[in-house]
């Protein structure tokens, strides 16, 4: 069997694929986190919770309501965005003028509350969400066999990242958004309803997280804690990529997923810390992140 640096090739490819899948989730989540931080100036600790909620909402749509995966992937991001909009209008808008730490604290509080509800309703034992029938099975590439569902995850996640990026970089709305990130009060003085823009961006970011949650649902045991483990890594991604950088989030998310995958093959002990070691190194050399501006 072919080996690459002492590792059987199929094992390496498998881990790289897994890395790409994880990287896609990191990209979707850190993209939303970056957008929200850019315009709202809030470090949204509840972002992982929205991802968790996305997965559980998909489950909820299936179990009592009988609405399958494709309904979930359509409806759950919208439901979550709606919830995000309510949270922004009722809670977050009160703290924009305060220090970042308040945003972190209040969203951390939200995390606790939402997780508490999920724990009470679903328990902590972990639920399974089946891969939809249309995406079951494998593709044989000759050198490795790819599960169709994982390919779908990568394509869907990166597709949505690309759409988001295009909207931000290539449209009038995106230009207004970028300007609002730089100087919201001046954009407001030009007659743009910035509070509305802020609400929509928060909804959008939360929707992206919930979309990631639905994509991830068939890949893992659903427990209320799944948001925790991912949000810490995603914070690392955002810091490495540069706070507020859209492209940085996407590229870094994918890159770190791959690095994690490689670490799992060559030095498994470091796989969960690799990102943070990298974060420290990046912060030493470029305190504003790889893609961040001064």
């Amino acid at each position: 069997m072919t080996e690459i640096f002492g590792v059987p090739a199929p094992v390496l490819y498998g881990q790289l694929l897994l890395g790409l899948v994880n990287g896609s989730f990191y990209a979707l989540l850190s993209l939303g986190l970056s957008l929200i931080f850019g315009l709202l100036n809030i470090v949204n600790f509840a972002h992982g919770t929205m991802y968790m909620l996305g997965a559980f909402l998909a489950y909820l749509l299936l179990e009592p309501l009988g609405l399958g995966y494709w309904w979930a992937i359509l409806l759950v991001p919208l439901l979550a965005a709606g919830l995000g909009i309510v949270i922004e209008r009722t809670i977050l808008k009160r703290i924009y003028k305060l220090d970042h730490i308040y945003g972190l604290l209040v969203t951390f509080g939200l995390t606790m509350v939402i997780e508490g509800f999920v724990r009470v309703y679903f328990g902590v034992s972990g639920l399974r969400y089946a891969v939809p029938p249309s995406l079951q099975g494998m593709v044989d590439l000759g050198f490795m066999r790819l599960p169709i569902y994982r390919i779908w995850v990568i394509v869907a996640a990166l597709g949505l990242c690309l759409v988001t990026w295009l909207v931000i970089e290539r449209t009038r709305l995106g230009a207004t958004l970028r300007a609002g990130t730089e100087n919201p009060s001046l954009v407001q003085a030009f007659g743009v309803n910035v509070p509305l823009l802020v609400t929509l961006v928060f909804g959008w970011g939360v929707g992206l997280a919930a979309f990631a949650g639905v994509l991830a649902a068939p890949l893992m045991q659903l427990t209320p804690q799944i948001g925790h483990s991912i949000i810490i890594t995603v914070f690392g991604v955002v810091v490495i990529g540069g706070m507020g950088s859209i492209l940085g989030s996407i590229v870094t998310g994918l890159g770190l997923g791959l690095i994690e995958g490689l670490a799992k093959v060559y030095y498994p002990e470091a796989s969960s810390t690799a990102i943070f070691v990298l974060m420290i190194l990046v912060l030493l050399v470029r305190p504003h992140g790889l893609f961040g501006k001064q």
Partner: peptide, 14 residues
């Protein structure tokens, strides 16, 4: 705005 081109800046105010 630094992240906008000259023309994007020009077209920004609605």
């Amino acid at each position: 705005f630094a992240s906008l081109s000259c023309e994007e800046n020009l077209l920004l105010p609605p």
